[in-house]
Amino acid sequence: MTAAGNRHPRPSREELAAAAHRTLPDVVAPGLDVLFVGINPGLWSAATGWHFARPGNRFWPALHRGGFTPRLLHPGEQDQLPTLGLGITNMVARASARADELTAAELVDGARLLADKVGRYRPRWVAVVGVTAYRIGFGRPKAGFGPQPEPLGGARLWVLPNPSGLNAHFTPETLGAAFAELRTAVQA
Results as ranks from 00 to 15, higher is better:
residue 85 G to T: 05
residue 136 I to T: 07
residue 119 G to L: 09
residue 154 G to K: 09
residue 73 L to P: 13
residue 72 L to V: 03
residue 111 A to E: 04
residue 108 V to M: 03
residue 64 H to K: 10
residue 157 L to W: 11
residue 63 L to D: 05
residue 102 L to R: 00
residue 75 P to S: 00
residue 76 G to W: 09
residue 132 T to A: 15
residue 146 G to I: 04
residue 112 R to S: 14
residue 147 P to W: 10
residue 168 A to W: 14
residue 103 T to N: 03
residue 127 A to M: 00
residue 166 L to G: 13
residue 147 P to H: 08
residue 109 D to H: 12
residue 144 G to R: 09
residue 107 L to W: 03
residue 97 A to W: 13
residue 122 R to P: 13
residue 68 F to Q: 05
residue 117 K to V: 12
residue 61 P to M: 01
residue 66 G to A: 05
residue 132 T to L: 14
residue 131 V to W: 13
residue 105 A to C: 10
residue 165 G to R: 02
residue 129 V to F: 12
residue 113 L to H: 15
residue 91 M to H: 07
residue 66 G to V: 00
residue 110 G to D: 04
residue 129 V to P: 11
residue 86 L to V: 02
residue 167 N to Y: 08
residue 157 L to A: 09
residue 65 R to W: 12
residue 101 E to V: 08
residue 146 G to D: 06
residue 123 P to E: 01
residue 57 N to S: 08
residue 77 E to L: 04
residue 103 T to M: 02
residue 138 F to M: 07
residue 126 V to S: 04
residue 138 F to T: 04
residue 81 L to K: 00
residue 67 G to A: 01
residue 68 F to P: 10
residue 90 N to C: 10
residue 115 A to W: 12
residue 108 V to W: 03
residue 88 I to A: 08
residue 76 G to Q: 12
residue 110 G to I: 02
residue 168 A to D: 13
residue 141 P to S: 00
residue 151 P to K: 05
residue 148 Q to F: 11
residue 64 H to V: 09
residue 162 N to C: 10
residue 55 P to H: 04
residue 60 W to N: 07
residue 75 P to Q: 01
residue 135 R to N: 02
residue 87 G to W: 06
residue 87 G to N: 04
residue 160 L to G: 08
residue 171 T to N: 06
residue 139 G to V: 01
residue 145 F to Y: 15
residue 159 V to S: 04
residue 102 L to M: 00
residue 109 D to V: 12
residue 101 E to F: 10
residue 147 P to K: 14
residue 130 G to Q: 01
residue 87 G to F: 07
residue 68 F to I: 00
residue 147 P to L: 06
residue 90 N to H: 08
residue 96 S to T: 14
residue 168 A to Y: 14
residue 60 W to Q: 03
residue 157 L to M: 11
residue 58 R to K: 10
residue 75 P to Y: 00
residue 65 R to K: 14
residue 56 G to S: 07
residue 63 L to W: 02
residue 131 V to N: 13
residue 126 V to R: 01
residue 140 R to W: 11
residue 80 Q to D: 14
residue 164 S to T: 05
residue 103 T to D: 05
residue 106 E to N: 04
residue 118 V to K: 04
residue 167 N to E: 01
residue 65 R to D: 15
residue 99 A to D: 05
residue 135 R to V: 09
residue 74 H to R: 15
residue 87 G to V: 06
residue 165 G to A: 06
residue 146 G to F: 04
